[in-house]
Simulated assay, not measured.
Amino acid sequence: MRCQPRYDGPVYIWLKNKQHCLLCDEAADGATPLCMPCETDLPWLGDHCQTCALPLPAAGLTCGQCLKQPPAFEQVITPWTYSFPIDSLITRFKHNAKWPFGHLLAELLAQALHHRYEEDLPRPALLVPVPLATRRLRQRGFNQAAMLARWLSASLDIPCDERLVSRTHDTDAQQDLNAQARKKNLRNAFALAPDASIKGRHLALVDDVLTTGATAQALARLLMDAGAARVDVYCLARTPKPGDGN
């Protein structure tokens, strides 16, 4: 039985002359179902850590944690902070199977990545979605990271490999744990496919939200130890540091 949905048709009918904003239901201005006022009001990520994208008070800085313990991944690329309405859209996509919201966010992330590629960001050779625990995959019916990676793959023309890494055992939900417990929870949680060939390759992990970075770190370390040349992280949103008021 396949838990992961395979839907080859459009998740949303992208008609330029009949688009309505998914947030306010007003007429949309462009090819995506989002009007300009709502797009402007999204919680766009401002100044942030150059490595992990943690929101910071000034540009061009690296956070203390990344300076003290540099992560295995090179850079986190994300457009937004995890606050309203992005948090609500991700929750509805992830927990209520509202795929149009996920598709919309993936399209906007792809636009942001296209812009970064035109500036100075190296393009990866492969997109790798964060695998979901088997028990949670059965409960949810789909892996939101895999769906995001597929949509990004189509928009960016970068191949996606959903089988390169897997979870070797079911772990507790990360959102229920503190930073230290998250790291312990992920110890030996992932494994490479037996036929994985990643030596010298630039890879990009794909996920919905980055909080402490424990999952990204565990996967990036696994890939780098296996010979990857570079690992980046692409996600929809970055949570602020606890106590920062968001």
Rank of each mutant, 00 (worst) to 15 (best):
G245V: 04
T134V: 06
R138S: 07
R116A: 14
G227N: 06
R140M: 03
N178R: 02
S197P: 00
A27P: 00
K98S: 12
D29H: 14
R140P: 03
S153E: 08
A191G: 14
G60A: 06
Y12V: 14
L54W: 09
P242A: 00
L67W: 11
K183A: 10
G9N: 08
L34Y: 07
E74V: 08
A28V: 06
E107C: 09
V206P: 07
K68G: 13
P194R: 13
E26I: 04
Y7C: 09
L15Q: 10
C21W: 03
N185R: 07
C66F: 10
D161N: 15
L164V: 00
L203S: 00
P33I: 14
L42C: 02
A31L: 15
P43V: 02
E26M: 10
T211P: 10
A97W: 06
G30S: 15
L223F: 01
K98T: 09
K184I: 12
A193F: 04
K241A: 11
P194I: 11
E74T: 12
L127H: 13
M147E: 13
A133I: 10
C21I: 01
N188R: 13
A191T: 02
P131W: 10
P37M: 05
D207G: 05
F73P: 07
Q4T: 09
G245I: 04
T40W: 13
P70G: 05
Y82C: 05
D232L: 01
G213W: 05
V165A: 15
F142Y: 11
V165G: 01
T51D: 09
Q19C: 05
V231N: 02
L126F: 11
R163L: 13
L205C: 07
L42E: 08
T40S: 12
T78M: 03
P57L: 10
L236E: 01
G213H: 06
S88D: 09
L104S: 03
G30N: 14
K199V: 13
G243N: 04
D207P: 01
K94D: 01
A189D: 07
K18T: 12
D207V: 07
C21F: 04
G243W: 00
Y82A: 02
P159Y: 12
L108H: 09
A72T: 07
P37W: 06
D47T: 13
D176G: 00
V165L: 14
F190P: 03
C3R: 13
